[in-house]
C-alpha cells in the first residue's frame, strides 16, 4: 500500500474509545488535582501543609482550609462550567468561535449584577443572585427567539444583540453611579474569584454537576447535531428537544458560573479549542475533558493573580489574566490552524 504521509499527523480513525477516554480523562483529572494543590500552596502567606493538617485551627490551617482551598475549588467549578458549556455550545451552534457568553448570558448577568450594586444590594449575595436571575432571563429570551425561527443562528444573533443592549444599559447606569459604587461594578464586571462560603460552593457544585452531567449525557446526540439539524434528524435525533435541553443545561451552567465569579472570558473559548485540536470533535470526549481542562486552567490563572500580587501591589481580577493569556494564545491557534496541511 502506498502511503501519502504528509506533515500533519494522521489521527487514528476513531479517536473516542472507552480505553483512550479513561486514560486521557484520568490524566486530566490528575492535572486538575495538581493545579488545586499548587494553587492552595501559592500566595503571599507560605502555608505549611503538615502544620495545617495537624491543626486546622492554626493560622496555616485557617489559610489553607478557610481561604485558599475554597477559592481554588471555586475556580475549578467556574472553569469547568465555562469550558464544558463552551464546548457544547460550539458544537450546537456549529461555530468554533462561539463563546459561552454568546447566548446573552453575560449581558443578562452583568446587567443584573450592575443593578444590584447600583441599588446598594451588596449584602446577602445581591449581585450574585441578580446576576443569576439576569442570566436566566436573558437565556429564556434568547431561547424563545431561537425557538420562533428554529435556527441556531437566530439564538446566536439574539444573544449578540441582547449583549449589546445590556452593555448600553450598563453604561447608562455607570454614568449615574458614585465613584466607589462604580469601582465595585467595574471590579465585578472584570470577573474575579473571591472567597465563597462552603454552602455557596456546595449549591454551585450541585448545579454544575447537574448541568454538566446533562451535557455529557446528551453529548452523543450533540455530535450528530454538529452535522446540521436535518442530518441529525435523519439519523434519529429529536432535534428540537435535544437543542433545547443542551441550551438549557449550558445556560444554567454559565449562569451559575457568572453568578459566582462575574464575567471571566476566554476560558470557554480557548480550553475547548485546544482540546479539540488534540482529541478531535467528539463531544463525548470534549465535554468532560473541557470541564477538567477548564478547571485546571482557571485554578492556575487564579494562582497567577496571587503570584502577581507583589508586582501590582494588588490582585488583578482573574478575568484579566485569562484574557491576557487567552487573547494571544487564541490568535496563535487560529493562525496555526490556517496553515496549509
Amino acid at each position: 500500500m502506498t502511503s501519502l504521509a504528509g506533515p500533519l499527523p494522521v489521527p487514528s480513525a476513531v479517536r473516542f474509545t472507552p480505553a483512550r477516554a479513561s486514560l486521557v480523562l484520568g490524566g486530566l483529572l490528575l492535572v486538575t488535582l495538581a493545579a488545586l494543590v499548587a494553587s492552595a500552596l501559592l500566595g503571599e502567606y507560605p502555608v505549611h501543609v503538615l502544620r495545617a493538617l495537624a491543626d486546622p485551627a492554626s493560622p496555616d490551617g485557617r489559610v489553607l482550609f478557610g481561604l485558599r482551598l475554597p477559592r481554588a475549588l471555586l475556580g475549578a467549578l467556574v472553569g469547568a462550567a465555562l469550558a464544558a458549556s463552551g464546548s457544547a455550545l460550539q458544537a450546537l451552534l456549529r461555530n468554533p468561535l462561539a463563546d459561552p457568553f454568546v447566548l446573552g448570558v453575560s449581558g443578562g448577568a452583568a446587567l443584573g449584577a450592575t443593578l444590584a450594586l447600583a441599588l446598594g444590594l451588596q449584602a446577602l449575595a445581591g449581585p450574585s443572585l441578580f446576576a443569576f436571575v439576569g442570566a436566566v432571563a436573558a437565556m429564556a429570551l434568547v431561547l424563545a427567539a431561537g425557538r420562533a425561527r428554529s435556527s441556531p443562528y437566530a439564538a446566536l444573533l439574539t444573544g449578540v444583540v441582547f449583549n449589546a443592549f445590556a452593555a448600553a444599559v450598563i453604561t447608562c447606569v455607570k454614568t449615574l453611579l458614585t465613584p466607589d459604587r462604580l469601582g465595585e461594578v467595574l471590579y465585578w464586571l472584570a470577573g474575579n474569584l473571591g472567597y465563597e462560603r462552603p454552602r455557596t460552593l456546595l449549591v454551585g457544585g450541585g448545579l454544575q454537576l447537574l448541568a454538566l452531567g446533562l451535557l455529557w449525557a446528551e453529548s452523543a446526540r450533540l455530535n450528530l447535531l454538529s452535522l446540521g439539524d436535518e442530518e441529525a434528524a435523519s439519523l434519529g435525533v429529536p432535534v428540537g428537544r435535544t437543542r433545547a435541553l443542551v441550551l438549557l443545561a449550558a445556560s444554567l451552567s454559565v449562569a451559575g458560573a457568572v453568578a459566582l465569579a462575574g464575567l471571566i472570558g476566554f476560558v470557554g473559548l480557548i480550553v475547548p479549542h485546544l482540546l479539540r485540536l488534540w482529541l478531535g470533535p467528539d463531544q463525548r470526549f470534549l465535554v468532560p475533558a473541557s470541564a477538567l481542562g477548564g478547571a485546571a486552567f482557571l485554578v492556575l490563572a487564579d494562582a497567577a493573580t496571587r503570584v502577581l500580587f507583589p508586582v501590582f501591589h494588588a490582585e488583578p481580577p482573574v478575568g484579566v489574566v485569562t484574557a491576557v493569556l487567552g487573547g494571544p494564545l487564541f490568535v496563535w491557534l487560529l493562525n496555526r490552524r490556517d496553515q496549509p496541511a
Binding site: P11, A13, V14, A91, R94, S226, L227, G280, P281, D282
Partner: peptide, 9 residues
Amino acid sequence: GDPGFTGLE
C-alpha cells in the same frame, strides 16, 4: 457541518 470528524468517525 464541518466539525472535523475523520472519515470512519
